[in-house]
């Protein structure tokens, strides 16, 4: 029983991170019909920037903020410089470009920051709370993880629902041509969309890293989990991505806890294939059909 509770709690906080990562994928997919396979590598890169700052004596929070700002800039640059020319072109070309970025960032990180495992600090305790006589797998850091993911989601929701900028961004995502005719600078909106997505991705990278070891490939599996979560949620809806993230986190946590941690990525593959074949529009859509 205690084990079940712990596995569930662990799944929830992991799920929150996958949700953030999936959200980043969905933001870009909605706007440009591109899955950014470089998202994980970009997040890894900004997390290393944070680590470098922290190791040079800055506080965790300076590193944290710097990573988010770096994500913003990196996302914008990537969209503006390398993605713009392939947007709207053959879908394979865009996929290949993001994969190229993925490899390049990973290699660059290994060159700049080293290819070994390094430990990344956590700003809050990593010892579980105690309930009665039990210590549960829910730590002050888990609270921070879930809290910061929530804050980001609320902020994004507010941006998209209640601001002019958010309206322009959504319009650009749904119909570029009509948005142009209404004077919306669509190019800028896409750049901003990538920038915001990269911030959310960077946050996910920081949260996964907290209290753990990082190395240039530490986000590889997270791309897969985030993609699975996004597909579970239907790839179109931010809300779906969040729900998909939590489901993925829980499911993988149970697999890891009861079957073996080596099988987690394979289980993710299984979930992905099952969803794509049975409910290609995601778990929450009312229509089951869609070309995937």
């Amino acid at each position: 029983m205690q084990q079940f509770v712990n596995i569930t709690l662990n799944g929830l906080s992991q799920g929150a991170i996958y949700a953030a990562f999936a959200l980043a994928l969905v933001l870009i997919w909605r706007a440009t019909r591109i899955i950014n396979f470089a998202q994980g590598a970009m997040a890894m890169f900004t997390t290393y920037l944070a680590l470098t700052l922290i190791e040079s004596g800055q506080s965790y929070w300076v590193g944290f903020a710097a990573a988010l700002v770096a994500g913003l800039v990196l996302g914008a640059l990537v969209e503006r410089i390398v993605m713009r020319p392939v947007e709207g072109g053959p879908e394979l070309n865009a996929v290949i470009v993001t994969l190229g970025l993925f490899v390049a960032f990973q290699a660059l990180a290994a060159i700049l920051f080293g290819a070994t495992f390094q430990s990344f600090p956590a700003p809050f305790g990593l010892r579980g709370f105690t309930v009665g006589e039990f210590t549960i797998a829910f730590t002050p850091f888990s609270v921070f993880v879930i809290g910061s993911v929530l804050v980001v989601m609320l902020a994004l929701t507010a941006l998209f629902r209640f601001t002019d900028l958010g309206l322009r961004m959504r319009a650009s995502a749904f119909s570029q041509e009509v948005s142009r005719l209404l004077g919306v600078r669509v190019g800028r909106m896409l750049t901003l969309g990538w920038a915001f997505a990269a911030v959310v991705g960077s946050l996910a990278g920081l949260l996964i890293a907290g209290g753990n070891l990082v190395h240039p490939a530490y986000m590889d599996a997270v791309i897969v989990y985030g993609f699975v979560a996004a597909v579970l949620g239907g790839l179109e809806s931010p809300g779906g991505a969040v729900a998909g993230g939590l489901i993925t986190g829980l499911a993988l946590s149970y697999v890891s806890g009861y079957l073996g941690s080596e099988l987690v990525t394979l289980a993710a593959l299984g979930i992905l294939v099952a969803v794509l074949l049975v409910r290609p529009r995601g778990l929450f859509s009312r229509v089951a059909e869609r070309r995937v």
Partner: peptide
């Protein structure tokens, strides 16, 4: 120059008011 395109160019995923607000923003 306001162009109402062939097929009208309603952004169907947005609400009626959001469509109008885009015009107002311009």
């Amino acid at each position: 120059i306001a162009h109402v395109p062939e097929g009208r160019g309603v952004i169907t995923e947005l609400t009626v008011e959001e469509n109008l607000r885009l015009g107002e923003l311009l």
